[in-house]
């Protein structure tokens, strides 16, 4: 029916059709393609026999190997736990005093702690633990609740102001908003607190205000922050005489703090992290501080 036509380059016949100048050769499917086709199909069919594959109404073929992705990962987790058991056990059982000088355990603390801190704590305390406005720096010497490793671990376990039954409770009252102090008093006590860490602030002009602030401080604040304003770790009240601030040490922020109060919230890690992980993190936090010049 069609006129036979050959392509001069390849020598193959055309199909005899033509679409606006386009022609096709009738070249047979190259052998390689067929081989390739067979190989991939053999692979696929083999796989279907080995693995769960074909749906059958209300069930499916389970495959000769009877594998299940969930069973596999659960086994892997069990194996992983067994692999870690030797040192996990030691960390769990040993006291912090025993772990600290142990180089092997401390190197694990370093590597594992880095990841745990990055994935759990960095969102608030920063990747390097230095905190930011509203979140305390964990690398300095100023601690709300205490910086020894046990206390840090305990802080992590119960959290601050959480729903954990043993939660630490930190409540900086809102003196201004709740009318405990009037505006003038708030300003003066703030000026006083500010002057504690900025001695140059006190001049002959504002000395009266600062003195008045000191009075207010002794009556309203000393109960928590101590008469010397050096804080009290039993109630999580920070030291107000040093250069470390959670919310900020400029006068304006101090006024805001005294006016509105503060109610920091540190989550509890009791349920999310294992005991060993909490210990590792406490040691890791400890090491962050040690490293600081």
């Amino acid at each position: 029916m069609e006129v036979e036509e050959r392509d001069p380059v390849s020598g193959h016949r055309t199909t005899g059709h033509e679409w606006n100048g386009i022609k096709e050769l009738d070249t047979p499917v190259p052998r390689g393609v067929l081989i390739f086709l067979v190989i991939t199909h053999v692979f696929a069919v083999t796989w279907w026999f080995l693995m769960p594959t074909w749906p059958l109404g209300t069930t499916y073929t389970k495959g000769l190997l009877d594998v299940d992705q969930r069973a596999i990962v659960e086994q892997q987790l069990v194996d992983a736990a067994a692999e870690r058991a030797p040192w996990i056990d030691r960390i769990e059982r040993a006291s912090f005093e025993e772990i600290l000088p142990n180089e092997m355990l401390m190197s694990i603390v370093q590597s594992s702690g880095h990841q745990l801190f990055g994935d759990n704590c960095a969102a608030c305390h920063g990747v390097d633990g230095r905190g930011s406005a509203n979140y305390p720096d964990l690398t300095d010497d100023d601690w709300l609740w205490g910086g020894d490793v046990e206390t840090v671990a305990e802080t992590m376990r119960v959290g601050v102001n959480t729903e954990h039954p043993e939660s630490r409770v930190a409540q900086m009252p809102s003196f201004g908003r709740d009318g405990l102090l009037n505006r003038e008093q708030v300003n003066s006590v703030a000026a006083y607190v500010y002057s504690l860490s900025n001695p140059d602030y006190s001049t002959s002009e504002n000395i009266d205000e600062i003195e008045a602030g000191r009075e207010v401080f002794l009556t309203s604040c000393a109960a928590c922050h101590g008469a010397n304003a050096r804080g009290n770790q039993d109630v999580g009240a920070p030291n107000l005489t040093d250069a470390y601030w959670i919310y900020g040490g400029d006068l304006q922020t101090i006024v805001t703090t005294v006016h509105g109060g503060r109610h920091g919230h540190m989550p509890t890690w009791d349920e999310r992290l294992t005991n060993a992980e909490i210990k590792i993190l406490a040691l890791y936090v400890h090491s962050l501080r040690v490293e600081k010049p």
Binding site: A133, Y135, P267, R272
Partner: peptide, 28 residues
């Protein structure tokens, strides 16, 4: 960013809302 399937309860509410202006806390 990280998976969020289990983020519920991981952070306090305020922590969570702070994450929504992220570079104040995590400059990276």
């Amino acid at each position: 960013g990280p998976d969020l399937a289990r983020v519920g309860g991981k952070y306090s509410d305020f922590g969570m809302s702070r994450i929504l202006s992220p570079r104040e806390v995590v400059p990276e």
